[in-house]
Design a protein around this nucleic acid. Structure first.
Length: 108
DNA sequence: CTTATGACTTTCA
DNA sequence: CTGAAAGCCATAA
């Protein structure tokens, strides 16, 4: 399948330990494509609702630890709540949410 | 097959 | 140091 990349991404997402977060580049690297961070983001973008319920998409954030979701269907507020419910501290800024990567980034 | 797009990242001015 | 621009990869049309 050519969509093997997406599947690989999803599989990796499910491997992220609870209470940890990962960056797009990190997932892309694990998926054997260190420069495919954007594709990783897209993989999450096309997730159907049932998929989103079983995949920890909320644990994926950008390199700065900021929730960079621009999609109205994927509220930053929801992501914040999901992360907090897992024990991840999400800090609030005026225009965005962010996580302390040094403390919560998934080390592998 | 060529062009366009995106929940990103890195580099250059 | 801060801001802007290009790069990169997979998928859709």
């Amino acid at each position: 399948m050519t969509t093997n990349f997406y599947q690989r991404v999803y599989t990796l997402l499910k491997k992220i330990p609870k209470g940890k977060v990962a960056t797009y580049g990190q997932i892309a690297t694990l998926a054997s494509s260190p420069r495919s961070a954007r594709v990783v983001g897209w993989a999450l973008h096309i997730l159907s609702e049932p998929e989103m319920k079983r995949i920890p998409w909320q644990r994926v954030i950008n390199r700065k630890g900021i929730i960079s979701t621009t999609c109205a269907d994927h509220p930053r507020d929801l992501q914040k709540l999901l992360l907090e419910s897992e024990g991840v501290e999400v800090k609030k800024k005026e225009d965005f949410y962010w996580v302390d990567l040094e403390k919560y980034q998934w080390k592998f």
